[in-house]
Structures are given as structure tokens and as C-alpha cells.
């Protein structure tokens, strides 16, 4: 195997690793989610939009919720990567968002939170079993 191939394989392995690096613990994430519950609920809109149906949804697309221009135009689609980026620093990820919140700085806490959001999205709380 030549050096270039070895390098590519290594890079691929590193990428695969970083994508799965922190699987996230939904039970711990549930506790992190309590911070969001000033403004959000899973199943209904509050100061912020509902979180049921989040994965795969275009940012700013819950009908009837008054999003900022910035969120509606962000062209983001919510998945583990976009959520990780947004939640690490909402105002930097989507400048002009009305989610005036510094974010979750700790990468592990974000992974837990995203794991919880994913689990909750497949649960009875979001009308699924």
C-alpha cells in the first residue's frame, strides 16, 4: 500500500470516528433539555417552536410560528450536525436569530442533548411509539 492510500484511509477512519465520536446519552440529555424548557416544549409552540418533528425539518418551518427572518432564510435542515453547530452558539450560527441564548459550550452536553431530542422525537411524547 502506498503512502497516499494509507493517508486517505487514515483520514477516512478519522472522519468516521469524529462522526460517531460522541454517541450521546439521552438520559443525561434530558437533564440538559431542562435548560431549553424556559422557551420550548416538545409537542407545542411556546416562546420557541415545538421540537417534535425536528429531525429532517427545514429551519424556520413550523406553520404559524413567528420565526425571525434570519431563521427562515437560513436554509438549514436540522440533523445532528446542524443542531450541534447551532446549539454551540446560536447567534453565531444564525446571526439575527431571535433565540437570544449563548448556547451549550460543552460538546459532550450537546451530544447528550441531541441524543435526547432524537429519542424524544421517536417517542409517545411526539405522538410515536
Amino acid at each position: 500500500m502506498n503512502a497516499l492510500w494509507r493517508l486517505l484511509l487514515l483520514a477516512g477512519a478519522a472522519l468516521a470516528f469524529s462522526a460517531n465520536a460522541a454517541p450521546g446519552d439521552p438520559d443525561r440529555g434530558k437533564l440538559v433539555y431542562e435548560r431549553c424548557q424556559a422557551c420550548h416544549a416538545l409537542a407545542y409552540d411556546r416562546t420557541g417552536p415545538r421540537h417534535c418533528g425536528l429531525f429532517g425539518r427545514r429551519a424556520g418551518s413550523v406553520p404559524g410560528f413567528a420565526y425571525s427572518e434570519a431563521m427562515r432564510r437560513s436554509k438549514l435542515v436540522w440533523n445532528a450536525q446542524t443542531l450541534d453547530r447551532f446549539l454551540s452558539n446560536p447567534l453565531k450560527a444564525v446571526p439575527g436569530t431571535s433565540m437570544g441564548y449563548a448556547g451549550i459550550a460543552d460538546r459532550g452536553e450537546r451530544a447528550d442533548l441531541i441524543a435526547y431530542l432524537r429519542q424524544a422525537n421517536g417517542s409517545a411524547a411526539c405522538g410515536r411509539q
Binding site: 435548560r35 424548557q37 424556559a38 422557551c39 437570544g100 441564548y101 449563548a102 448556547g103
Partner: peptide, 17 residues
């Protein structure tokens, strides 16, 4: 209590921004 706890987190997240 849940609402108040959430509100504390929300203001904590607002202070630095």
C-alpha cells in the same frame, strides 16, 4: 418550579450575549 428553573437558564444564556 420547572418554569422558574428554565427561566434561570434562559437568563443565564442571555447575560453573555
Amino acid at each position: 418550579a420547572t418554569l422558574e428553573k428554565g427561566a434561570v437558564s434562559a437568563y443565564l444564556g442571555a447575560v453573555p450575549v
